[in-house]
Design a protein around this nucleic acid. Structure first.
Lengths: 136, 136
DNA sequence: CTCCCTGCAAACTATTTGCACCGTC
DNA sequence: GACGGTGCAAATAGTTTGCAGGGAG
């Protein structure tokens, strides 16, 4: 990611590096708010606006994927910035990324049937994770 | 939908009936703003707040499906208020609903592999519709 | 006649923008 | 040293809420 920033003529400020670090290290799909909290640990003066600007910049460079949810708000994924599926726990909000190899075929078939040119997709499953199930 | 409202002890006001009518008649997936415009044709004094309240009520009753998009905002579907897939044109925003029969199997397989209990899913494809393709 | 519902305006949340100062390159 | 980036505060967009008056049941 840092390479992508440099390559595109952007400065590598400490704040940007911190945002990149959070996105690279966090296994989950952090919200802007969550990134903000993490970055503030190292740079307490950082503002939310900077996080938004940096995240949007990375999104434009194709380095992170934005996942907009109607209720959870936007989450970001810096590990696999290409279309992939998610399984979201509706209670604890844990998100895992399972492999769904069938999607490429389905995508191609739909393109044929609908006449659309499909360049991107999104597949989310909602339910309860094992931990939250037990807690019932 | 009107039955569902009555059954749940809600009043059938002209405004609510108008919202239901828009959701039932519109082939696409209207936004709150779009519903508002349509309803105002018959009831010019209607407020946006009422549309929001009615749509949320119908959503709670399971009569409409809310589709939150990161950029397009929320759209509503009163025809098939159960999970189904969408193909969205990223230029003109036209949305069609193709059949994807394979989803039930994939859902079951993921439940087995991840340990989650999956009760709902969402599948969206993004691309260009035939009309917008030609206009290029 | 009783509440529930409506419509207005204000409140809220999430995100974006303007601008003076600052620090990377 | 120049100019892109930061941080603050104010602006904006989308949605929700509080409350007084009005109409469905």
């Amino acid at each position: 990611m840092t390479d992508a920033l440099k390559r595109d003529g952007h400065r590598l400020t400490p704040q940007r590096l911190a945002v990149v670090a959070v996105l690279a290290e966090s296994k989950g799909h952090p919200s802007v708010e969550r990134i903000y909290e993490q970055v503030k640990k190292d740079f307490p003066t950082t503002s939310l606006a900077t996080i938004y600007k940096t995240v949007n910049l990375l999104k434009e460079l194709g380095q992170v994927l934005e996942l907009g949810f109607a209720d959870l708000g936007s989450r970001y994924d810096g590990h696999q910035p290409w279309p992939h599926s998610h399984v979201i726990c509706t209670r604890c909000r844990r998100i895992v990324d399972p492999a769904v190899p069938a999607m490429a075929d389905i995508s191609k078939r739909l393109a044929r049937e609908t006449g659309y040119v499909i360049n991107h997709h999104r597949l989310d499953f909602f339910g309860l994770c094992p931990a939250c199930r037990k807690r019932d």
